[in-house]
Amino acid sequence: MTPGAAPRGGIWVATGVMTAALAIAPFVGVYPVFLMKALCFALFACAFNLLVGFGGLLSFGHAMFLGTAGYVCAHAAKIWGWPPELAILAGTLAATLLGVVAGALAIRRQGIYFAMITLALAQMMFFFYVQAPFTHGEDGIQAVPRGMLFGLLDLSETLIMYYVVLTIFVAAFLFICRIVNSPFGQVLQAIRENEPRAISLGYDAERYKLLAFVLSAALSGLAGSTKAIVFQLASLTDVHWTMSGEVVLMVLLGGMGTIFGPVVGAFAIIGLENYLSGFGQWVTVITGGIFVVCVLAFRRGIVGELGAWWAQRK
Protein backbone atom coordinates (compact mmCIF):
# COMPACT_ATOMS: atom_id res chain seq x y z
CA MET A 1 0.00 0.00 0.00
CA THR A 2 1.57 3.26 -1.04
CA PRO A 3 0.52 6.77 -0.09
CA GLY A 4 -0.45 7.55 -3.63
CA ALA A 5 -2.40 4.32 -4.08
CA ALA A 6 -5.76 5.64 -2.92
CA PRO A 7 -7.28 8.23 -5.22
CA ARG A 8 -6.89 11.73 -3.79
CA GLY A 9 -10.58 12.50 -4.07
CA GLY A 10 -11.42 9.29 -2.21
CA ILE A 11 -9.39 10.40 0.76
CA TRP A 12 -11.26 13.70 0.96
CA VAL A 13 -14.63 11.99 0.81
CA ALA A 14 -13.63 9.41 3.42
CA THR A 15 -12.24 12.12 5.72
CA GLY A 16 -15.50 14.04 5.39
CA VAL A 17 -17.56 10.94 6.21
CA MET A 18 -15.32 10.12 9.17
CA THR A 19 -15.58 13.69 10.54
CA ALA A 20 -19.35 13.77 10.12
CA ALA A 21 -19.75 10.38 11.81
CA LEU A 22 -17.60 11.49 14.74
CA ALA A 23 -19.48 14.78 15.00
CA ILE A 24 -22.87 13.08 15.44
CA ALA A 25 -21.58 10.09 17.44
CA PRO A 26 -22.32 11.61 20.91
CA PHE A 27 -25.96 12.06 19.86
CA VAL A 28 -26.47 8.44 18.86
CA GLY A 29 -25.47 6.99 22.19
CA VAL A 30 -21.67 6.75 22.09
CA TYR A 31 -20.04 8.03 25.26
CA PRO A 32 -18.08 11.23 24.59
CA VAL A 33 -15.40 10.21 27.09
CA PHE A 34 -14.83 6.96 25.21
CA LEU A 35 -14.72 8.86 21.93
CA MET A 36 -12.20 11.35 23.32
CA LYS A 37 -9.96 8.56 24.56
CA ALA A 38 -10.18 6.80 21.19
CA LEU A 39 -9.45 10.06 19.33
CA CYS A 40 -6.36 10.79 21.44
CA PHE A 41 -5.06 7.29 20.71
CA ALA A 42 -6.05 7.56 17.05
CA LEU A 43 -3.94 10.72 16.79
CA PHE A 44 -1.08 8.99 18.57
CA ALA A 45 -1.36 6.01 16.19
CA CYS A 46 -1.49 8.29 13.12
CA ALA A 47 1.65 10.08 14.35
CA PHE A 48 3.37 6.74 14.88
CA ASN A 49 2.25 5.52 11.45
CA LEU A 50 3.80 8.61 9.86
CA LEU A 51 7.17 7.30 11.04
CA VAL A 52 6.76 3.54 10.61
CA GLY A 53 4.34 3.39 7.69
CA PHE A 54 5.65 6.21 5.56
CA GLY A 55 9.20 6.53 6.88
CA GLY A 56 9.89 2.82 7.34
CA LEU A 57 11.27 3.38 10.85
CA LEU A 58 9.93 1.18 13.65
CA SER A 59 10.29 3.09 16.91
CA PHE A 60 9.72 1.14 20.09
CA GLY A 61 9.79 4.12 22.38
CA HIS A 62 7.01 6.40 21.23
CA ALA A 63 5.44 6.40 24.70
CA MET A 64 8.16 8.85 25.74
CA PHE A 65 6.66 11.52 23.50
CA LEU A 66 3.08 10.83 24.56
CA GLY A 67 4.01 10.76 28.25
CA THR A 68 6.45 13.67 28.27
CA ALA A 69 3.92 15.92 26.59
CA GLY A 70 1.28 14.78 29.07
CA TYR A 71 3.47 15.64 32.07
CA VAL A 72 4.56 19.01 30.72
CA CYS A 73 1.01 19.94 29.72
CA ALA A 74 -0.46 18.83 33.05
CA HIS A 75 2.24 20.63 35.02
CA ALA A 76 1.78 23.83 33.00
CA ALA A 77 -1.99 23.78 33.42
CA LYS A 78 -2.05 22.82 37.11
CA ILE A 79 1.04 24.35 38.73
CA TRP A 80 1.72 27.30 36.45
CA GLY A 81 -1.95 27.91 35.83
CA TRP A 82 -1.56 28.22 32.08
CA PRO A 83 -4.66 28.21 29.88
CA PRO A 84 -5.28 24.88 28.05
CA GLU A 85 -4.15 26.11 24.62
CA LEU A 86 -0.74 27.16 25.99
CA ALA A 87 -0.42 24.04 28.13
CA ILE A 88 -1.09 21.83 25.08
CA LEU A 89 1.41 23.86 23.08
CA ALA A 90 4.02 23.50 25.83
CA GLY A 91 3.54 19.73 25.97
CA THR A 92 3.78 19.45 22.19
CA LEU A 93 6.96 21.55 22.11
CA ALA A 94 8.53 19.43 24.85
CA ALA A 95 7.83 16.27 22.82
CA THR A 96 9.23 17.97 19.71
CA LEU A 97 12.49 18.86 21.46
CA LEU A 98 12.77 15.37 22.88
CA GLY A 99 12.13 14.13 19.33
CA VAL A 100 15.08 16.14 18.02
CA VAL A 101 17.44 14.67 20.63
CA ALA A 102 16.13 11.09 20.49
CA GLY A 103 15.91 11.19 16.70
CA ALA A 104 19.45 12.51 16.26
CA LEU A 105 20.73 9.61 18.37
CA ALA A 106 18.56 6.83 16.94
CA ILE A 107 18.40 7.71 13.24
CA ARG A 108 22.01 6.65 12.62
CA ARG A 109 21.03 3.02 13.05
CA GLN A 110 18.54 0.91 11.14
CA GLY A 111 16.05 -1.86 11.77
CA ILE A 112 16.30 -3.65 15.10
CA TYR A 113 19.07 -1.33 16.33
CA PHE A 114 16.93 1.72 15.71
CA ALA A 115 14.08 0.09 17.64
CA MET A 116 16.41 -0.83 20.50
CA ILE A 117 17.86 2.68 20.82
CA THR A 118 14.39 4.23 20.92
CA LEU A 119 13.33 1.65 23.52
CA ALA A 120 16.41 2.36 25.64
CA LEU A 121 15.83 6.12 25.51
CA ALA A 122 12.17 5.66 26.42
CA GLN A 123 13.15 3.49 29.39
CA MET A 124 15.57 6.19 30.54
CA MET A 125 12.77 8.73 30.37
CA PHE A 126 10.48 6.34 32.27
CA PHE A 127 12.90 5.97 35.16
CA PHE A 128 13.47 9.69 35.17
CA TYR A 129 9.73 10.28 35.55
CA VAL A 130 9.50 7.63 38.29
CA GLN A 131 12.08 9.59 40.31
CA ALA A 132 11.32 13.20 39.38
CA PRO A 133 9.27 14.91 42.14
CA PHE A 134 7.05 16.95 39.82
CA THR A 135 5.43 13.82 38.33
CA HIS A 136 4.33 12.53 41.77
CA GLY A 137 5.52 9.04 40.86
CA GLU A 138 2.80 6.39 41.05
CA ASP A 139 0.07 8.97 41.75
CA GLY A 140 0.76 11.06 38.66
CA ILE A 141 -0.36 14.66 38.25
CA GLN A 142 -4.03 14.53 39.20
CA ALA A 143 -6.93 16.97 39.04
CA VAL A 144 -5.46 18.94 36.16
CA PRO A 145 -7.86 21.83 35.44
CA ARG A 146 -9.35 21.77 31.95
CA GLY A 147 -9.76 25.54 32.01
CA MET A 148 -11.20 27.92 29.45
CA LEU A 149 -9.92 27.50 25.89
CA PHE A 150 -8.89 30.94 24.56
CA GLY A 151 -10.77 32.31 27.59
CA LEU A 152 -14.01 31.52 25.77
CA LEU A 153 -14.84 27.83 25.78
CA ASP A 154 -15.43 26.11 29.08
CA LEU A 155 -13.76 22.72 28.65
CA SER A 156 -15.30 21.30 31.80
CA GLU A 157 -18.43 20.89 29.66
CA THR A 158 -17.96 17.40 28.24
CA LEU A 159 -19.47 18.13 24.83
CA ILE A 160 -17.39 21.30 24.36
CA MET A 161 -14.28 19.33 25.32
CA TYR A 162 -15.30 16.64 22.86
CA TYR A 163 -15.64 19.00 19.91
CA VAL A 164 -12.30 20.63 20.76
CA VAL A 165 -10.66 17.18 20.78
CA LEU A 166 -12.39 16.32 17.50
CA THR A 167 -11.14 19.58 15.95
CA ILE A 168 -7.58 18.93 17.09
CA PHE A 169 -7.76 15.38 15.76
CA VAL A 170 -9.16 16.29 12.34
CA ALA A 171 -6.68 19.16 11.93
CA ALA A 172 -3.75 16.88 12.83
CA PHE A 173 -5.12 14.13 10.59
CA LEU A 174 -5.32 16.49 7.61
CA PHE A 175 -1.83 17.75 8.43
CA ILE A 176 -0.51 14.17 8.29
CA CYS A 177 -2.29 13.60 4.94
CA ARG A 178 -0.56 16.70 3.67
CA ILE A 179 2.87 15.59 4.93
CA VAL A 180 2.44 12.22 3.19
CA ASN A 181 1.43 13.91 -0.06
CA SER A 182 4.03 16.67 -0.04
CA PRO A 183 7.37 17.04 -1.83
CA PHE A 184 8.91 15.90 1.47
CA GLY A 185 6.56 12.90 1.56
CA GLN A 186 7.71 11.88 -1.93
CA VAL A 187 11.36 11.91 -0.90
CA LEU A 188 10.53 10.03 2.30
CA GLN A 189 8.82 7.33 0.29
CA ALA A 190 11.76 7.14 -2.10
CA ILE A 191 14.13 6.70 0.84
CA ARG A 192 11.95 3.98 2.33
CA GLU A 193 11.86 2.14 -1.00
CA ASN A 194 15.53 2.40 -1.93
CA GLU A 195 17.73 4.32 0.43
CA PRO A 196 21.09 3.90 -1.41
CA ARG A 197 19.50 5.12 -4.62
CA ALA A 198 17.97 8.15 -2.89
CA ILE A 199 21.41 8.99 -1.49
CA SER A 200 22.97 8.56 -4.91
CA LEU A 201 20.49 11.14 -6.21
CA GLY A 202 21.86 13.60 -3.67
CA TYR A 203 19.39 13.28 -0.81
CA ASP A 204 20.80 13.23 2.72
CA ALA A 205 18.60 10.35 3.84
CA GLU A 206 19.31 10.84 7.54
CA ARG A 207 18.08 14.42 7.55
CA TYR A 208 14.80 13.44 5.92
CA LYS A 209 14.35 10.61 8.37
CA LEU A 210 15.12 12.93 11.27
CA LEU A 211 12.49 15.41 10.08
CA ALA A 212 9.95 12.57 9.85
CA PHE A 213 10.94 11.46 13.34
CA VAL A 214 10.54 14.95 14.80
CA LEU A 215 7.17 15.49 13.09
CA SER A 216 5.99 12.15 14.45
CA ALA A 217 7.22 13.03 17.95
CA ALA A 218 5.51 16.43 17.82
CA LEU A 219 2.16 14.94 16.77
CA SER A 220 2.48 12.22 19.43
CA GLY A 221 3.07 15.06 21.88
CA LEU A 222 -0.08 16.79 20.70
CA ALA A 223 -1.97 13.57 21.41
CA GLY A 224 -0.39 13.26 24.87
CA SER A 225 -1.11 16.88 25.81
CA THR A 226 -4.72 16.66 24.67
CA LYS A 227 -5.14 13.40 26.57
CA ALA A 228 -3.81 15.00 29.77
CA ILE A 229 -6.35 17.83 29.53
CA VAL A 230 -9.22 15.46 28.68
CA PHE A 231 -8.56 13.04 31.55
CA GLN A 232 -7.14 15.73 33.84
CA LEU A 233 -4.32 13.32 34.55
CA ALA A 234 -0.73 12.61 33.56
CA SER A 235 0.56 9.28 34.81
CA LEU A 236 3.31 6.72 34.38
CA THR A 237 1.01 4.58 32.21
CA ASP A 238 1.62 6.91 29.27
CA VAL A 239 5.43 6.63 29.46
CA HIS A 240 5.50 2.91 30.16
CA TRP A 241 6.94 0.65 27.44
CA THR A 242 3.63 -1.20 27.14
CA MET A 243 2.21 2.03 25.73
CA SER A 244 4.90 1.95 23.01
CA GLY A 245 3.80 -1.62 22.30
CA GLU A 246 0.12 -0.76 22.23
CA VAL A 247 0.57 1.87 19.52
CA VAL A 248 2.47 -0.67 17.39
CA LEU A 249 -0.49 -3.04 17.82
CA MET A 250 -3.02 -0.35 16.84
CA VAL A 251 -1.12 0.53 13.68
CA LEU A 252 -0.55 -3.11 12.71
CA LEU A 253 -4.18 -4.03 13.29
CA GLY A 254 -5.53 -1.04 11.38
CA GLY A 255 -3.03 -1.19 8.52
CA MET A 256 0.51 0.14 8.52
CA GLY A 257 1.24 2.71 5.83
CA THR A 258 -2.43 3.44 5.16
CA ILE A 259 -4.01 6.79 5.92
CA PHE A 260 -7.04 5.51 7.83
CA GLY A 261 -5.58 2.31 9.28
CA PRO A 262 -4.29 3.81 12.55
CA VAL A 263 -7.68 5.42 13.24
CA VAL A 264 -9.48 2.11 12.74
CA GLY A 265 -6.85 0.27 14.78
CA ALA A 266 -7.03 2.72 17.67
CA PHE A 267 -10.84 2.61 17.80
CA ALA A 268 -10.78 -1.19 17.64
CA ILE A 269 -8.28 -1.60 20.46
CA ILE A 270 -9.75 1.11 22.71
CA GLY A 271 -13.22 -0.26 21.98
CA LEU A 272 -12.14 -3.77 22.96
CA GLU A 273 -10.51 -2.55 26.16
CA ASN A 274 -13.61 -0.57 26.99
CA TYR A 275 -16.33 -3.06 26.26
CA LEU A 276 -14.40 -6.10 27.43
CA SER A 277 -13.30 -4.47 30.68
CA GLY A 278 -15.62 -6.87 32.51
CA PHE A 279 -13.16 -9.64 31.67
CA GLY A 280 -10.44 -7.97 33.74
CA GLN A 281 -6.94 -9.24 32.95
CA TRP A 282 -8.31 -11.32 30.08
CA VAL A 283 -8.43 -8.20 27.92
CA THR A 284 -4.65 -8.36 27.60
CA VAL A 285 -4.88 -12.00 26.51
CA ILE A 286 -7.60 -11.17 24.00
CA THR A 287 -5.64 -8.26 22.45
CA GLY A 288 -2.58 -10.53 22.39
CA GLY A 289 -4.63 -13.13 20.51
CA ILE A 290 -5.81 -10.50 18.05
CA PHE A 291 -2.23 -9.45 17.47
CA VAL A 292 -1.19 -13.03 16.63
CA VAL A 293 -4.17 -13.51 14.28
CA CYS A 294 -3.45 -10.17 12.65
CA VAL A 295 0.20 -10.98 11.95
CA LEU A 296 -0.58 -14.50 10.73
CA ALA A 297 -3.76 -13.99 8.73
CA PHE A 298 -4.01 -10.43 7.54
CA ARG A 299 -0.64 -8.79 7.67
CA ARG A 300 -1.76 -5.63 5.90
CA GLY A 301 -4.21 -4.83 8.69
CA ILE A 302 -7.91 -4.10 8.37
CA VAL A 303 -7.66 -1.09 6.06
CA GLY A 304 -4.72 -2.57 4.14
CA GLU A 305 -6.65 -5.79 3.40
CA LEU A 306 -9.78 -3.88 2.42
CA GLY A 307 -7.70 -1.70 0.10
CA ALA A 308 -6.07 -4.73 -1.51
CA TRP A 309 -9.43 -6.44 -1.92
CA TRP A 310 -10.86 -3.30 -3.52
CA ALA A 311 -7.90 -2.98 -5.89
CA GLN A 312 -8.28 -6.61 -6.98
CA ARG A 313 -11.98 -6.30 -7.57
CA LYS A 314 -11.47 -3.51 -10.06
Binding site: G4, R178, Q186, V187
Partner: peptide, 28 residues
Protein backbone atom coordinates in the same frame (compact mmCIF):
# COMPACT_ATOMS: atom_id res chain seq x y z
CA UNK B 1 11.82 3.19 -6.54
CA UNK B 2 9.55 0.18 -7.15
CA UNK B 3 6.19 1.54 -5.96
CA UNK B 4 6.52 4.97 -7.48
CA UNK B 5 5.37 5.43 -11.05
CA UNK B 6 7.89 5.93 -13.84
CA UNK B 7 7.00 9.61 -13.86
CA UNK B 8 7.46 9.93 -10.09
CA UNK B 9 10.80 8.11 -10.27
CA UNK B 10 12.19 10.69 -12.65
CA UNK B 11 10.52 13.54 -10.78
CA UNK B 12 12.25 12.59 -7.52
CA UNK B 13 15.55 13.38 -9.20
CA UNK B 14 14.29 16.62 -10.77
CA UNK B 15 12.84 17.63 -7.42
CA UNK B 16 16.25 17.51 -5.76
CA UNK B 17 17.72 20.10 -8.13
CA UNK B 18 14.72 22.34 -7.72
CA UNK B 19 14.85 22.32 -3.91
CA UNK B 20 11.82 22.51 -1.60
CA UNK B 21 12.31 18.86 -0.77
CA UNK B 22 11.94 19.40 2.96
CA UNK B 23 8.59 21.17 2.46
CA UNK B 24 6.16 18.94 4.28
CA UNK B 25 3.39 21.57 4.30
CA UNK B 26 3.14 22.00 0.51
CA UNK B 27 0.91 19.76 -1.62
CA UNK B 28 2.70 17.27 -3.86
Amino acid sequence: FPHLSVLENVRIALQRKRGHSYDFWRPA
